[in-house]
Amino acid sequence: MQSVMDFIIEVIREPAIFLGLIALTGLLLLRKDFSSIVSGTAKTVIGVVILTQGTNILMNSIAPLTEGFNVMYNIDNPEIEPVLGAETILSEYGTPIGLAMLIAFSINLIVARFTPFKHVFLTGHMLFWFPFIFVAVGIENNLNNTQLIIFASILTSLYIIIAPALLRPFVRKVTGSDDFIIGHPTTILSLIAGMVGKLFGTKGKSSEDIKFPSSTEFLREISITSSIVMFFVYIVVSVIIGFEAATIAFGAEQNLFIYSVMQGILFGAGLTILLLGVRMMLAEIIPAFQGISQKWIPNSVPALDAPILFPYAPNAVLIGFVVSMITSVATIFMTGSWAFSALLSYH
């Protein structure tokens, strides 16, 4: 029994397999021919793997910056060592976390079937990390094992039902359709940004209509723009903390300038790969999900990972990244106290 449960949990936690199975189920329900079923399922799986690899490349291109910021805040190796720690929770509380995940996902399916909350939360790795964090909160509140499972199941199901529903009208405004919504921990930040954007924004000019003169029209190409932006981020951080400190902080084995060029290009390449994967999986999973929304859960839509939105406004992604990096660094400096910044510099 335990091994069956572990198997199901592993399937859900692996986005490629999980979404592949969803696509397969949908296509079978639509009674597609054999060839379409294999093709739709395989392209979903491969699309998700491409997306994931793009994400990994992006993380590798961003990660060294974290050390650069630590130097900026003037902190050496901030030590945050909770008594338990994430590793210990994962190994000692795997069963309550897994059970809560399965119970919450089942509740999501039932709620989608019978209530007006018509979405299915399909970001599998997030289906795992939410019960994890609720189990941690439960331990802090001295809940016993049974109480932990009940608590984490209820909170996780509330989260995966409420959060995507709150963001749904905002996503619809971006995509112009209701084919999918977002199931991702960005929700609160997206709601805040959306409301601020509505308050201070102008309707007319989108981030994607920025006009470039013909000599710089190459900047319309997101792979190039994003490479240049990331190159400048590395250069600016290097100038602020000093070239020598930057070389050490980034772990740069090349000349700092060449290193920054390559990190920039790595970022552009990663984003290009991610976008390719997103387009490939979207083209397959959306029509396949029709099977589920026609036969099993009427009018339901899938709630998917955040990068699914990236192709709709890639310039905005770069703007969000750079602007929020500046304001978050400024916030850490303004909140002032060394202890607080020590906590936060663990980036």
Binding site: L167, G201, T327, T331
Partner: peptide, 28 residues
């Protein structure tokens, strides 16, 4: 990148380029 990049897309949908900048600033 991931959370606020997405938030900026949402803000852009509400208030265009200026919305995206203001929205991500506050989100940071």
């Amino acid at each position: 990148f991931f959370e606020i990049g997405t938030a900026a897309i949402i803000a852009n949908g509400q208030g265009g380029l200026r919305g995206a900048i203001a929205g991500s600033a506050v989100a940071g």
